[in-house]
């Protein structure tokens, strides 16, 4: 594969905030600090995990693996490296 054809991935983390119970395990295991604890409350009355806009997800899947409430999904999308 030539350099021009190389593809890179961007990852979008979706947190279902109303299912989140605020255990913070995803925040603890995120290697790049992409997930943080929100200052707002969800319908359960707990502070939920949310994504930080100024960092980039590397798609390791640690948050998905460790989340006890299955409220995290990671969508990987292919994009050109130059973009």
């Amino acid at each position: 594969m030539s350099v021009k054809e190389q593809k890179t991935f961007c990852f979008q983390v979706k947190v279902n905030r109303d299912k989140c119970k605020g255990c913070q395990l995803c925040i603890f295991y995120c290697p790049v600090g992409y997930l943080v604890l929100s200052s707002r409350l969800n319908k359960k009355g707990v502070k939920f995990a949310e994504t930080k806009k100024d960092n980039e997800c590397i798609g390791c899947g640690f948050c998905y693996l460790i989340c006890p409430d299955a409220c995290i999904e990671i969508h990987g999308k292919e994009q050109d490296k130059e973009k």
Binding site: K21, C23, L25, L65, I66, C67, P68, D69
Partner: peptide, 9 residues
């Protein structure tokens, strides 16, 4: 389940 319980995983 409680927050952080392993059952969910």
């Amino acid at each position: 389940y409680c927050s952080g319980c392993g059952h969910g995983i």
